[in-house]
Amino acid sequence: MTEDLKISIETLYRTFSVYPFRNEMEVCQCCFSEADKEKLYSKHLKDLETDDLSGFAFKAMTTWGGVDDFKHFLPRIFELLAADDFTGDAFVVLEKLEYGKWKEWPEIEKDAIIGFLWVWWEDMVRSKPYFDKEAFTGIYKLTDDIDRLLDIWTIDLNDHSFSNFVDFVYSYFSDLKGKRAEFKDLDNAEIDKIINWTKANSGYFETGFFYFLDKDNELAEKASIAQFIFEHSGVRGN
């Protein structure tokens, strides 16, 4: 986790510390047991783990608690997401912001969330060896800024941004160029920007293949396949 990401998480804790924990949170008795509820009461906020928070995170504001309750736990939920310790779908958690009408929240809260999203995305493309499509589309829906998502994602053979790029093309480029089932939230203009960005970076396929051939043969082979997918997609490279 980068220093910038740590700072953004601390900003979340500081910003949302005005929302206290409520013992009397409304909860669907049919959906959650006393043991489920006790997990939230058992530790301090920063000590809660995925198992303690997952039930609440996915049901917050629908069958468990209200907006202010979600705001109380938001920093720890996002911290676990950033640490890649949160079991489940990042997209579902990010959608909770939309459900809670976060764009109507105070500016200081929106700024803290947006600041976190950008540094989290940069950390992901540099530290994860695979493309997180759920986080990518989730952040896009919240920020409506495909340009910044792509600008942040500069390719470097010395971190995971290259393997992230390879996995994106290997796993999703055919869908992007075809039925777009995985990218239904993006319109044609955003899709074109992603395709053009991929084209602009397509030279990394060959460069990365030779760079990793003796270092990581599996990644080199995947890069070769990704290059084949790209070159047969109808998009001409540089």
Score class of each variant (00 low, 15 high):
residue 81 L to K: 01
residue 188 N to S: 10
residue 140 Y to L: 13
residue 203 G to W: 12
residue 193 K to Q: 12
residue 166 V to E: 05
residue 159 D to P: 13
residue 212 F to S: 02
residue 139 I to Q: 08
residue 42 S to Y: 06
residue 86 F to L: 12
residue 124 M to D: 01
residue 31 C to P: 01
residue 70 F to R: 10
residue 165 F to I: 00
residue 48 L to A: 11
residue 78 F to C: 05
residue 178 G to L: 02
residue 157 L to F: 12
residue 218 E to W: 08
residue 60 A to L: 05
residue 128 K to D: 06
residue 38 E to D: 13
residue 237 G to K: 12
residue 28 C to K: 14
residue 109 E to W: 07
residue 178 G to Q: 06
residue 216 D to E: 07
residue 129 P to V: 10
residue 58 F to K: 08
residue 64 W to I: 04
residue 10 E to T: 12
residue 180 R to L: 05
residue 140 Y to F: 14
residue 209 F to M: 15
residue 161 S to M: 07
residue 167 D to H: 14
residue 123 D to A: 10
residue 136 F to M: 03
residue 6 K to I: 13
residue 159 D to R: 11
residue 194 I to S: 01
residue 105 W to M: 15
residue 28 C to H: 08
residue 121 W to H: 03
residue 86 F to R: 12
residue 221 E to N: 13
residue 223 A to P: 01
residue 35 A to N: 08
residue 27 V to G: 03
residue 51 D to K: 15
residue 226 A to M: 05
residue 218 E to A: 12
residue 10 E to F: 08
residue 35 A to Q: 12
residue 193 K to R: 15
residue 162 F to S: 03
residue 17 S to P: 07
residue 180 R to A: 03
residue 223 A to W: 01
residue 73 F to C: 11
residue 41 Y to C: 04
residue 84 D to I: 08
residue 224 S to H: 10
residue 167 D to N: 14
residue 163 S to M: 14
residue 95 E to Y: 09
residue 11 T to N: 15
residue 89 D to I: 07
residue 179 K to R: 07
residue 194 I to R: 01
residue 71 K to N: 04
residue 39 K to C: 04
residue 75 P to W: 02
residue 173 F to H: 01
residue 156 D to L: 04
residue 199 K to H: 00
residue 205 F to T: 01
residue 130 Y to M: 09
residue 65 G to L: 06
residue 79 E to R: 06
residue 144 D to Q: 13
residue 198 T to N: 07
residue 174 S to H: 04
residue 174 S to R: 12
residue 44 H to V: 09
residue 131 F to R: 06
residue 228 F to C: 11
residue 72 H to P: 00
residue 57 A to Q: 06
residue 58 F to N: 09
residue 28 C to R: 15
residue 97 L to S: 06
residue 158 N to G: 04
residue 7 I to A: 15
residue 43 K to V: 03
residue 221 E to M: 11
residue 77 I to W: 03
residue 21 F to I: 02
residue 221 E to W: 04
residue 74 L to W: 08
residue 194 I to F: 06
residue 138 G to I: 09
residue 27 V to H: 05
residue 7 I to M: 09
residue 231 E to N: 13
residue 192 D to I: 04
residue 136 F to E: 00
residue 232 H to I: 02
residue 57 A to P: 00
residue 47 D to I: 01
residue 162 F to P: 04
residue 207 T to P: 00
residue 119 V to W: 01
residue 207 T to G: 12
residue 116 F to I: 05
residue 236 R to A: 15
residue 185 D to K: 11
residue 197 W to E: 02
residue 201 N to I: 00
residue 184 K to H: 08
residue 66 G to L: 05
residue 107 E to T: 10
residue 169 V to L: 11
residue 175 D to G: 01
residue 173 F to M: 10
residue 221 E to Y: 08
residue 90 A to L: 05
residue 109 E to F: 11
residue 41 Y to I: 08
residue 44 H to P: 04
residue 216 D to T: 00
residue 14 R to E: 15
residue 46 K to S: 12
residue 137 T to C: 13
residue 27 V to W: 07
residue 177 K to W: 02
